[in-house]
């Protein structure tokens, strides 16, 4: 069963088309990252899937059920991009109320467990009017997972948080995924998406311009791998032989005293080059591989 399936999903406000027909499939158990600049349409897309707004055109299904579906809402958790809470309620009361609304009554112990999970255990009885921005973000995640949903939408879960909280939330997302939850998240943070997500979509001007795993995106943007190899001096008798081999193995060969740099087509070539050095009685001290980062891929787009 697919966690998310959209067909030609569009959203327009007046004559302005914000989301321009998105076809997307997210498998269950994935951590799916949605990347894009401000105003690319990421939040609008999530809002349509979570019934915050209505699509202008197209269809979508969540957990195999055609949306919008009020029954399937009980199986999803949503952390909206902009969260204001009921100022007179404490974190525990929020969780109890919102979980009941999802059809699952929870005990105070369960609320405490979830608040501990997000790092709010010491503030669980404080009214949310006294919460800082970061605490509200954490409560936003807590309310999204309190009813143990199968599919979790996290819209910018770490934006504006301090480094320690970001690491904590990354661990939390990993733990949720280990428990079998599907996570669909948007982010501005490229490192975060690269680190966490099993698949990534890059959205630009309302359209998905690239989608795939990190390896797939890299192979699309980078046809060669740059390898830098630190080695011991090459014996004179082997120098010509090794040079001929390297010229045939790759391109853009650069040789200095203790380093060579070469562009190869695939990873197999790297091991072949190391074997060639060993055969020529040259020790290999270090191998560095330069790959395209998500940042480079993103900027390319």
């Amino acid at each position: 069963m697919l966690a998310i399936e959209t067909k030609q999903l569009k959203k327009s406000y007046g004559s302005s088309l914000i989301v321009k027909g998105i076809d997307l499939i997210v498998e269950q158990g994935e951590i799916f990252g949605f990347l894009g600049r401000n105003g690319a349409g990421k939040s609008t897309f999530i809002n349509m899937l979570t019934d915050i707004s209505k699509p202008s055109f197209g269809t979508y299904a969540l957990l195999g059920e055609e949306g919008p579906n009020d029954q399937v809402k009980k199986r999803i958790g949503v952390m909206p991009d902009y969260s204001t809470f009921y100022s007179s309620l404490t974190a525990i009361k929020h969780l109890k109320f919102l979980s009941s609304l999802s059809g699952k009554h929870v005990t105070s112990d369960r609320c405490k467990e979830v608040l501990k999970f997000v790092g709010l255990e010491s503030d669980m009885n404080k009214k949310t009017s006294k919460y800082s921005f970061g605490m509200k973000k954490k409560l936003g995640i807590a309310q999204a997972i309190i009813h143990d949903p199968e599919l979790i939408f996290l819209d910018e879960p770490t934006s504006g948080l301090d480094a320690e909280s970001v690491i904590h939330i990354h661990q939390l997302i990993h733990n949720l995924n280990k428990r079998g939850k599907t996570i669909f998240m948007t982010s501005h943070n490229l490192d975060e998406v690269q680190k966490l997500c099993s698949r990534i979509a890059i959205m630009k001007e309302g359209q998905i311009v690239k989608i795939g795993s990190m390896d797939e995106l890299r192979s699309f943007y980078q046809s060669t791998i740059t390898v830098k190899l630190k080695h011991s001096p090459i014996p004179e008798s082997e120098e010509m032989h090794l040079l001929q081999y390297l010229k045939a193995a790759g391109s853009n060969l650069e040789i200095s005293n203790s380093y060579i740099m070469i562009d190869v087509e695939n990873e197999n070539k790297i091991s072949q080059i190391i074997r060639a050095f060993t055969r020529c009685k040259v020790d290999v001290f270090r191998v560095e591989v330069e790959e395209a980062s998500l940042e480079e891929i993103f900027l390319e787009e």
Binding site: T50, K74, Y82
Partner: peptide, 9 residues
Amino acid sequence: RTIRFLVTR
């Protein structure tokens, strides 16, 4: 925007 917690449930 607290309505977002309600309409998503």
